[in-house]
């Protein structure tokens, strides 16, 4: 494939993803606390507790501090007249081509966290797949949605 796509997603995506990650990680911490209490009651050797805390610390660091940034820096997209070109992936880099004539419909959507940051994600569906561009600024998202739906002329005959 050629050069990576040119458009990046919104910078505040990193913050939004961090908050999401914090929510998930705090569930992990709650679990860890429960297990620790159980271990103390059952007199399990203390170094098991240390292992659990180490795992929690490491995953907090990775999921809250490293991954959102990395994920943001990898996420690119570009719109062409005939196709949509998407790149993403933290460990596995993936580049996708979606031809315009295969697009069935486009949605924008927004959860509470994205809303707080004035962000929205765009979902592009073909007959076989869905592709999501997460966290664009709201007006970018709706522009992109309108552009794609204008460019996607569905040719019934081919489906």
């Amino acid at each position: 494939m050629r050069k990576p796509p040119i458009n990046r997603i919104a910078t505040s995506a990193i913050k939004a993803w961090r908050i999401t990650a914090i929510i998930y990680v705090s569930i992990l911490w709650l679990l860890a606390i429960a297990v620790t209490v159980l271990f103390i009651i059952l007199d399990v050797p203390i170094w098991f507790v240390f292992i659990i805390i180490a795992i929690c610390l490491l995953s907090t660091y990775v999921f809250v501090f490293i991954f959102p940034k990395l994920r943001w820096s990898r996420w690119r997209y570009e719109l062409f007249e005939q196709e949509i070109y998407i790149q993403h992936g933290i460990l596995i880099m993936s580049r996708t081509l979606v031809p315009m004539i295969r697009v069935q419909h486009v949605d924008t959507k927004q959860g509470p966290i994205l809303k707080k940051f004035q962000l929205a994600s765009v979902t592009i569906s073909t007959a076989a797949t869905t592709h999501e561009i997460p966290a664009l600024r709201m007006e970018d998202a709706s522009n992109l949605r309108d552009q794609i739906s204008a460019l996607a002329r569905v040719d019934e005959d081919d489906v």
Binding site: I92, M93, S94, R95, A128, T129, H131
Partner: peptide
């Protein structure tokens, strides 16, 4: 007939100049 095409590559594949190709159809 192909609805979308995806090329995937992880770090080691990149070093080895390999890639995984995913094709989606109805």
């Amino acid at each position: 007939r192909i609805q979308s095409l995806e090329k995937k590559q992880h770090k080691i594949q990149k070093i080895q100049k390999l890639a995984t190709m995913k094709l989606s159809i109805i």
